[in-house]
Design a protein around this nucleic acid. Structure first.
Length: 477
RNA sequence: CGGGGUGUAGCGCAGCUGGCAGCGCGCUGCGUUUGGGACGCAGAGGUCGGCGGUUCAAGUCCGCCCACCCCGACCA
């Protein structure tokens, strides 16, 4: 909307991020501290994320359902680690209908407890298992410091909750959904992520262990972009989720939970954005192709608009918008749509009408270099091809950026240096003490113990103890 | 909760030793424009964060309060 220059550079990254969100009209601040208003353009992006995930959930046998926003306080208190983890950030309702409530209600920070309570009623036999349910909804966590999309008091997400007959099945499910998130991130959002396990200190409150997809943002900080938890029998025991097995023996279930939130919108912004603004991954972009008509007089306007309608029809398989704002100049629109991250722009002027062609400009390649002429009859095919190329190019660029900023740090000095502007990948003895020392000295935390690693022998980067485990260390959002 | 900062038009800001409330962008109307952020003319838009004090006179000086932002602590 204005010609203020933006720079996606380290010292300005935070400012850049906020400006992009405002200017691209993704979200706005609500009149309540820490609360976010998601605007239509931002919500359209979220809806595409929802759809991409939902398709994958259905394909893996999950069903959607809805559980209440309010949870009795006593439910939260049933799982010890869970309540300890969440109590500082709970919003509590004490009054309803003008009267004080007998028992305070918690606005759900997550739904393990109430869903666990229901599962206990629903599950009686091994024949009832597995239960595979997902919920789309909103949750509230009273965070001290907030950032749009990344950490807000209220956020939108999906939370999957499953119950299984055996530990092995639960673990299988936990990893299956982790890989669903990985597949989504890579193949829909063009965000390369590292899949791994969270350390004991970083895991979900109440989980046996937690997995994460970890992404590197444009300022090299890490973002936990989705998580999958193996809850073991912790919640089954707290909520009496039991079943009779084939030998008529009463058994506790094994449960999992997994979630991905509107935080992922922040991941998209911070992974792909550039000095011009947003760059949206083609498969999730609310508008994949925008048509900008160019004309000088009424006669040209009529010709160009007629032609533009034909082009629009030819591309009806895509999410397409014809920018018919006559009061704005083409140059303005070019910049406007670039800022909003639209992957492809089609320019149609009198010359193109005469030639039976259009100009297509790629968002990821600035200026003339990203423009090409395309014949009308090859248009649909070319657009599909370009969208795919764009996706691949964005994935490659982000992958290269990430790999260029990961250092295999063998010594503690190397690690301290590496986490200043990137991630360190180092041997670690898995002790809380060494983890805490790194955090104390550098503000970097263990991001994850990656699933794929060679388990070569080495010594802990902090204490020197022998280990075959490596982990990523980085500053994080 | 600690440290720092900012509150003046929708947004971004200027406003000095107190003296008629301003600028840029945006917005409305008309006209000319339109292949990389157009231009002219005419307009609309204000509880200067709030309360109190000093003064002939306060956006400006003093006191208190409030809100928001940034950096910490804390956390997805």
């Amino acid at each position: 909307m204005s010609n203020d220059s933006l720079t996606a550079q380290n010292e300005n990254f935070s400012e850049w991020y906020n400006q992009i969100i405002q200017k691209a009209e993704l979200a706005d601040y609500a009149p309540v501290r820490g609360c976010m208003v998601v605007r239509p353009y931002g919500w359209a992006l979220w809806e595409n994320i929802q759809q991409a995930l939902d398709t994958r959930f259905k394909a893996t046998g999950h069903q959607n359902a809805a559980f209440p926003l309010f949870i009795p306080m006593s439910f939260l208190e049933k799982e010890k680690e869970h309540v300890e983890g969440f109590s500082p950030e709970l919003a509590v309702v004490t009054h309803g209908g003008g009267q004080e409530l007998e028992e305070p209600l918690v606005v759900r920070p997550t739904s393990e407890t109430i869903i666990g309570h229901m599962y206990a009623k629903w599950i009686k036999s091994y024949r009832d298992l597995p239960v595979l349910i997902n919920q789309w909804g909103n949750v509230v966590r009273w965070e001290m410091r907030t950032r749009l999309f990344l950490r807000t008091l209220e956020f939108y997400w999906q939370e999957g909750h499953t119950a299984h007959a055996t530990a092995a099945e639960a673990e299988e499910e936990t990893l299956r959904m982790l890989h669903v998130y990985e597949d989504f991130a890579v193949n829909e959002a063009a965000i390369p992520v590292i899949t791994g396990m969270k350390s004991e200190t970083e895991k979900f409150a109440g989980a046996v262990h937690s997995y994460t997809i970890e992404g590197m943002m444009g300022d090299t900080k890490a973002l936990q972009s989705g998580t999958s938890h193996n809850l073991g029998q912790n919640f089954a025991k707290a909520f009496d989720i039991q079943y009779l097995d084939a030998q008529n023996q009463l058994q506790y279930c094994w449960t999992t939970s997994w979630g991905l939130s509107t935080r992922f919108v922040g991941a998209i912004i911070m992974t792909h954005g550039d000095d011009q603004g947003l760059v949206l991954p083609p498969r999730l972009a609310p508008i994949q192709v925008v048509i900008v008509p160019i004309f000088r007089n009424d006669e040209e306007k009529q010709q160009v608009m007629e032609y533009a309608e034909i082009v629009k029809k030819a591309l009806s398989a895509f999410r397409i918008k014809l920018d018919d704002r006559f009061e704005q100049t083409p140059g303005f629109k070019f910049n406007d749509w670039e800022m909003r991250g639209v992957p492809l722009r089609i320019e149609i002027g009198p010359r193109d009408v005469a030639d039976g062609k259009v100009v297509i400009a790629r968002r990821d390649i600035p200026g003339k270099a990203g423009k090409s002429f395309v014949e009308l009859n090859a248009l649909s095919h070319t657009v599909q091809q370009l969208l795919d190329e764009l996706h691949q190019a964005m994935l490659q660029k982000a992958t290269k950026f990430r790999d260029d900023h990961i250092t295999a740090a063998a010594t503690y000095d190397d690690l301290k240096e590496a986490v200043q502007n990137g991630w360190a990948y180092s041997h670690w003895c898995e002790s809380r003490e060494c983890e805490a020392k790194i955090k104390e000295d550098t503000k970097a935390t263990t991001r994850c113990i990656p699933l794929s690693q060679d388990h070569s022998k080495g010594t802990c980067v902090v204490c020197g103890k022998e280990t075959t485990t490596k982990a990523y260390f980085a500053k994080a959002y």
